[in-house]
């Protein structure tokens, strides 16, 4: 053999960081993704601040509209990024053979998935900062305890919705993924216990929404922001969703379309 310079795989953390950075920038530079991840949640925040949708609930608790809106909008951010954002990106990457190609590099399938999770978490941090900043400008007063309590909640929510997004993106066509996650986003935002608390819903419907990952995420964040209380049951519900969807995704995910 000639004296060829050989190369080897970059270290595991290097590969994941590189992929995480790449996926994060891809999400933050894409116009549609920005609309979904940043603009729509901010519209919701401003909308709920200046309309009366949450008034009866706010009066009941003796809090401002923004106090109820902020945790709901944070929940919506998680759904935007983890379910819609990564779902759509992964669906189209799969269609164009990108997942297949990247899985043949030293990154591999595991590295690719971990890079995506890292990107979801990074974008959620960015969204959190932007939402808090705008909320403060609108008159919201943040407290440290709810913010600290919300960290494990956002992790559970991100896990559940990323797993659900991967399950959809890995099993149906890219266009169908786009349609499903966008529709799910709209339905869950309004009727999934995300922006509007579930005790507004009649009977059995409220109960169903409570066991949806969106309802659980919204309820947890409102518990933390409104009552400074960490609710175990909804966290458990989100983890069950994460494990169920994650195992189905691991079993049925197709790397090429």
């Amino acid at each position: 053999m000639s004296q060829q310079v050989v190369s080897s795989a970059a270290s595991f953390p290097q590969r994941i960081l590189a992929q995480g950075k790449y996926e994060t920038l891809a999400m933050l530079k894409n116009g549609e993704q920005l609309l979904l991840n940043i603009a729509f949640p901010l519209f919701a925040l401003v909308g709920l601040r200046y309309t009366g949708f949450l008034d009866s609930y706010a009066q009941q608790l003796g809090v401002t509209r923004l106090d109820i809106a902020v945790p709901g909008v944070l929940a919506l951010c998680v759904i935007s990024t983890a379910l819609s954002g990564q779902g759509i990106a992964t669906g189209f990457d799969r269609r164009y053979g990108v997942l297949r190609f990247l899985s043949t590099t030293p990154l591999g399938k595991t590295g690719l998935m971990m890079g995506k999770i890292l990107a979801v978490l990074t974008v959620i941090v960015v969204q959190y900062l932007v939402v808090l900043l705008v909320a403060v400008l609108l008159g919201f007063r943040p407290h440290l305890i709810p913010i600290l309590l919300s960290i494990p909640t956002l992790l559970c929510g991100a896990a559940a919705f990323t797993a659900l997004g991967m399950l959809i993106a890995g099993t149906v066509r890219a266009e169908a993924t786009l349609a499903i996650v966008n529709m799910a986003w709209a339905i869950l935002a309004i009727g999934g216990g995300t922006l509007i608390p579930t005790h507004h819903f009649p009977g059995i419907l409220g109960w169903i929404v409570n066991i949806l990952p969106s309802g659980a995420l919204g309820a947890s964040l409102r518990g933390e922001y409104l009552h400074q209380e960490f609710l175990f049951l909804p966290h458990l519900i989100m983890l069950v969703w994460a494990i169920l969807c994650g195992s189905f995704a691991a079993k049925f995910f197709k790397w090429s379309a």
Binding site: S7, A9, A26, G97, R100
Partner: peptide, 14 residues
């Protein structure tokens, strides 16, 4: 995988 280079038929590029 680091020792193997692959060019897929459809490229597989983002």
């Amino acid at each position: 995988r680091a020792r193997v280079g692959i060019m897929l038929q459809d490229g597989g590029l983002p």
